[in-house]
Design a protein around this nucleic acid. Structure first.
Lengths: 215, 215, 215, 215
DNA sequence: CATGAATGAGAGTTCATTCAT
DNA sequence: AATGAATGAACTCTCATTCAT
């Protein structure tokens, strides 16, 4: 998820490791609290209980520590602990499991996702990072769609990559809408439960591919 | 689209009107060139060929002139000149026309949409503005879905509002991906033509609602 | 009271006279409300319901209009309508009448006196103006003290001018403390009635000169 | 004298202490030279030979450093090294010693007193500060007057607090007139020697209280 | 005489980054 | 490896004053 080019080698000593880790953790706290733009390096070092100068021992700037923060969540976001589903399971069950895992991971890292959205629209470095991450999802889903088409289960007229781009976008947008955007009370769209979300996402996805339904 | 609360009364004299308009136009140029954050007020006044002080005769700050810029595109974005479609037309034709009009408007205002995305993730004021705009689309589409359900044409098991939220998000996400995001050459997903875009969006939307297809 | 060198000729036409007068009156309102430093020329013209440019038809700047404002109160301050007292009256009665008239004028023009204090400590022009005004009082009182000494009624060891300087300062300081300074509630010195003020001022003055007392 | 609420903690390191102290000293120089209003932060930092940014390490603004400047003179002003006088000494000698000490302190800090007068008429914060300082003097003198009344030495008809307010004001006004106001050559009141000043102030004070005199 | 838009110099303030200790 | 004081460039915003209409 994180651009490895943004990350330097980890410090070797134990103390160095601890300080670096305190900074990353402090940065996450501060970023989530104040946003990327409004956070100052000094806030991060204060939170990490170290001096301003120390920061530069480990990071070249705000972007570099933000990349480090993202990296801590990378594993969780890219490979959400999906309950194992057999390949020959009901395709809809697979989609549902996948959506559920995706939304759960989104919710766990909601603040960070919002932050990434903020930063990606500011800094090309992170725009590319977000893009790569999204592309990985899109390609994975495209492969799955192609398989379903090969098995004669999905609408063959759909270009798998385009369809995946659209549907993956739909899912990630729902995640953003439900877990990042503060619910605008009064006006706006009604809230839905987590299960409603999984359920509508899955049904729309399945419908969109024209998977055979048993209901 | 733009928050009218951000906008003060227009100047009364002709000269004032001209200056204000030059500033708004210059601001759009500068914002689209440098981005919202990296643009400085003096760049805008330089572009508009007036002094820094003059800016403050018409706007209180960057946010206020950005709202004014958005307002100039509001009409075009909210009511994209949709080719008239008869109500009893083929529902899929209606959806296609709507998607086509939406994408066309998105493309016309692509830079501005990217800017709005940038600013909305920074400034709560504009987050709300974007939200309101999105909600209007979602509700409009939800009504249309409900009507199709009533006519027995669309999957009755879908909550119209949730379905609309998901599908509208899908469309707007596609617009963002294709018209705003710079195509990352080499890696990433393949480009598609404008017509491909309309076509896949329409087919996925129709499928998702389980509209009867004639193919 | 006002430095006449600060004042230009009055306008000749009726309209001009009216506009100028509206400006002076507006200026007094604004100065008293916002203070000299915090008031902006534009506030004055707004209050006077004329344009910014018009101001310069009549005044060269804030100081000039402030001088004009002071002038309107000059007469009242310099020659407070003192009830006529016979020269051979009881000297203490004369002093009391004089103090009463002084305090009454101070109270009537309290806001303006506070303003003058503010401006005199900023602008040498008005420092001199205040000085001249004070000197006039001091000299007048010095003459009165000298007369009482000549008549064998007042302490002959006092230098009349120095004594007048000190005692006149005492009186004007009391006026400032009671009518200009906002009473600091809770802490600070107790309030006194207007009559108490006159009475203590008079008694101290009379004592200080060792005027014979009948009590 | 200075409002402690305006003062933050002193820096801990030696270097910090030195820089802060250089800034305060530079500020006093600049304020006394240019006045409070006409001085710019960069003049102060230039005088202190440090950068503009450094200023903000120690002070939030001009008012805060002015408070710090006042604080350096506080002790000297509030407790002027008065030569010890026995409590049962001649009351007039006590008053004279007190006046002498007051005027001497006033003279030593004349520029600062003028500055305080300037600022107190502009900034409520410092108005209160000046007020508190004045009140302390007034109350101290009121106690002394009350004691003399109790001993049957002073005019019993005077309210001690009011009398002290008036007489203390007289003294401080004389200090201002003699040490702060630039002597307006030619016009105005004649100058007096320091001893004349002490002597007239003391005689008027003693007379005003009707203390028994031996002359 | 009146208008009010335009001017532009100048001040305060922030904060990422450096570097002597 | 850690400190934290010092730096200084950069930007916003104000408002007295002018002048074409």
């Amino acid at each position: 998820m994180a651009d490895t080019s943004l990350l330097r080698d980890l410090p070797t000593t134990g103390r160095g490791l601890r300080t670096r880790s305190a900074l990353v953790s402090a940065a996450r706290t501060v970023f989530e609290r104040d946003g990327y733009l409004d956070s100052r390096l000094i806030d991060i070092t204060k939170e990490a209980q170290c001096s301003a100068g120390t920061f530069y021992t480990y990071f070249a700037g705000k972007d570099e520590i933000f990349a480090a923060v993202l990296e801590t969540a990378q594993e969780d976001m890219m490979h959400p602990g999906m309950p194992h589903v057999e390949a020959d399971d009901d395709p809809i069950a697979v989609i549902e499991a996948s959506n559920r895992a995706y939304f759960a991971a989104y919710q766990r890292n909601a603040k960070l996702m919002g932050l990434l959205e903020q930063v990606a629209n500011i800094d090309p470095q992170f725009r590319r990072l977000r893009q790569r991450r999204a592309d990985a999802f899109v390609r994975r889903n495209a492969r799955s769609i192609a398989t379903l088409q090969d098995r004669g289960l999905a609408d063959a007229k759909l270009d798998p990559l385009l369809a995946s781009l659209a549907l993956s976008g739909m899912i990630s947008r729902l995640g953003f809408a439900y877990f990042v955007t503060e619910p605008n009370v009064g006006e706006g769209v009604q809230p839905a439960s987590f299960d409603d979300l999984v359920s509508i996402a899955t049904r729309l996805w399945a419908n969109a591919l024209r998977l055979p339904m048993h209901d």
